[in-house]
């Protein structure tokens, strides 16, 4: 497998191996910074390293981005958000310098608390104690529908719950 996740090639990519953490590989080129926003890396402790590789050659994708974050494992909500904006991404969990788990992101049938409904008139945007909820109505191309107002959407980046 090419890339920095399984065989870190520090010389080429200048990304050092991490002891514990998460590598998100095969992010469509140009979307790594959006993935960082989802991860909320600003909330990590000061001793954790965050590495980002932009526009890296990939056999499978042509070009890709990679994000590597020390001392963080993804919550299901963050994993779902990454699946929405970077459906080709793979996630590796690193423990003690070894890849313990590796899997492509996958999208469940229902997304809770991941997106903000784009409909300004939706009840979920009006101060009620309720989390947004969307159901996947079509996978290719991806379309989701708000479980409350039933509005469909096919564009996700501007509507991620930050």
């Amino acid at each position: 497998m090419p890339g920095a996740s399984s065989q870190p090639s520090g010389k080429e990519l200048r990304i050092t191996p991490i002891r514990n953490g998460t590598v998100i590989d095969h992010i469509p080129s140009g979307l790594a910074l959006e993935v960082l926003k989802v991860l909320k890396v600003e909330n990590l402790d000061r001793d954790s390293e965050v590495s980002v590789a932009l526009h890296v050659r990939s056999q499978r994708m042509g070009w890709k981005d990679i994000v590597k974050v020390e001392n963080m494992e993804l919550s299901p909500q963050k994993s779902n958000a990454i699946a929405l904006i970077a459906p080709t991404a793979t996630i590796s969990i690193i423990r003690d310098y070894k890849v313990r788990e590796k899997h492509p992101v996958s999208l469940p049938d229902r997304l809770v608390g991941v997106l903000k409904c784009p409909n300004p008139n939706c009840i979920t945007n009006h101060g009620e104690p309720v989390e947004s909820e969307f159901e996947v109505v079509r996978r290719r191309p991806l379309a989701v529908r708000c479980a409350y107002c039933e509005r469909s959407m096919e564009e996700f980046l501007p509507h991620l719950a930050r």
Partner: peptide, 12 residues
């Protein structure tokens, strides 16, 4: 209700 989805929320 004036907001869409209000009844779905109420039902929950």
């Amino acid at each position: 209700h004036p907001y869409e989805g209000a009844s779905r929320l109420a039902a929950q």
